[in-house]
Design a protein around this nucleic acid. Structure first.
Lengths: 226, 226
DNA sequence: AAACTAACGTACTAGTTCGTACATTCACGG
DNA sequence: CCGTGAATGTACGAACTAGTACGTTAGTTT
């Protein structure tokens, strides 16, 4: 091989590229796509703006590269696969808590997703490699739900995507809307004590929903079309 | 009075101002703060850029004015106050559904909130008039929770802010993350059939959480500090 | 109806921001 | 050890963008 790994070369395409991506991710996450400045990103790296264009061709392509990197790092959700040996109730709770931790640990990613939604996900659509990202989690949830219904633990017929949405919504909101929530309610959802309580709460929530007896006062969770 | 209301004057400060605000809201919601262009906003009104500076002094002040307008329109949540005559279970379910409808109906507002969070709510903090916005809803929830505990319908000791967060998260996420969710899971949460089901689901969810028996598999919803 | 002022339009400027042309240096193969 | 191309730095330009100077018109007041 012609690539001496640990020799710390002065010129190192991979390192430069990686450094640009890293800085760009922070900047885009903090300022949004339009708000981030190419010059600023360049200034925060050890290299120059020239290199950004050398490796990524332009601002938009850099942004897409950042999205792809962020998404690929986040693929580690698939480690959640090992919840399936647990009993259904414990499995879904653990999955919820893993999702919670996952969102907590990838705040830049959350912001990038928010930014993408503001732009109607136009960039995500320009990149392939992203479509099948949801698949694995849904498989896990499906199997947990099936097991739960079989064992009688889960009393409601729930759709896997809905359940995933319910869990994600809770975890995503806590991180994404942290600042306006604090401004309006004076509560910092990121503070350790709240964090711990909310982590339990998301598990309790899904479990209660899936195991709950039909709620009084209206049609039960197993809803027909109204 | 010196103001002929329906006479359709050529020069009308209020109308011009309102038109600017309206267009600005759309533009900021669609492009973000940095992405929105003052020239573009001006072009979409019947007036000129000069007027934006005449009435609002600058881009940032215009943006803040948009935020304030959006928030004040949204104060209508307080109409939810009349859920309190209902039985606790039905009251909290109705509140959840009203919140759902509310988010569904104010998509621009949702986007503005997302944008604010990307910028760490720095603009919201610059405006007063926003701080006490959360108050009323919390009062309603508090009273519903108290009634529910008194009647024995609610078995868990829940915090009003947490409950509000749980409901908001669900409703907010469905609207805010619509686009990436569709890109990743191929499901359009805004489509009528999904909309209706999710609307029931948010009610079922809160009710299940509050009325649920202590979930098997872990500590119950009435959580001590871990 | 004359005078006055709020409301509005035009044309411009200063500064920024993405992108590039051109020169240079380092690393590696022969 | 030297040629060659990948990797990097410098300096610049064209286009955009927020904001403004200055002039004009419509409505109101007296």
């Amino acid at each position: 091989m012609t690539i001496p790994a640990s020799v710390e070369r002065q010129r190192d395409a991979d390192r430069t590229k990686a450094e640009i991506l890293e800085v760009a991710q922070r900047e885009f996450a903090r300022k949004g796509y339009a708000g981030a400045r190419v010059d600023e990103i360049a200034a925060l790296t050890r290299t120059t703006k020239r290199m950004i264009y050398y490796y990524f061709s332009g601002k938009e392509q850099l942004y897409i590269a950042v999205l792809e990197k962020a998404y690929s790092e986040v693929r580690s959700v698939e480690r959640a696969l090992d919840v399936e040996h647990l009993a259904p109730v414990q499995a879904i709770r653990t999955l919820a808590e893993l999702t919670f931790d996952h969102h907590d640990a990838h705040r830049d990613f959350i912001k990038l997703v928010s930014i993408e939604n503001i732009h109607q996900a136009e960039h995500i659509r320009k990149s392939d490699m992203l479509a099948n990202l949801g698949g694995p989690v849904l498989g896990v949830i499906s199997r947990i739900l099936a097991a739960g219904r079989a064992s009688g633990d889960f009393t409601v017929e729930a759709d896997p995507i809905d359940i995933h949405m319910m869990i994600s919504a809770f975890c995503f909101f806590r991180v994404a809307n942290q600042h306006t929530f604090e401004a309006l309610f004076g509560r910092d959802m990121a503070a350790p004590e709240h964090r711990a309580r909310l982590r339990r709460m998301v598990g309790d929530m899904v479990v209660a929903y899936l195991t709950g007896t039909a709620p009084a006062g209206a049609a039960g969770p197993t809803a027909g079309s109204a």
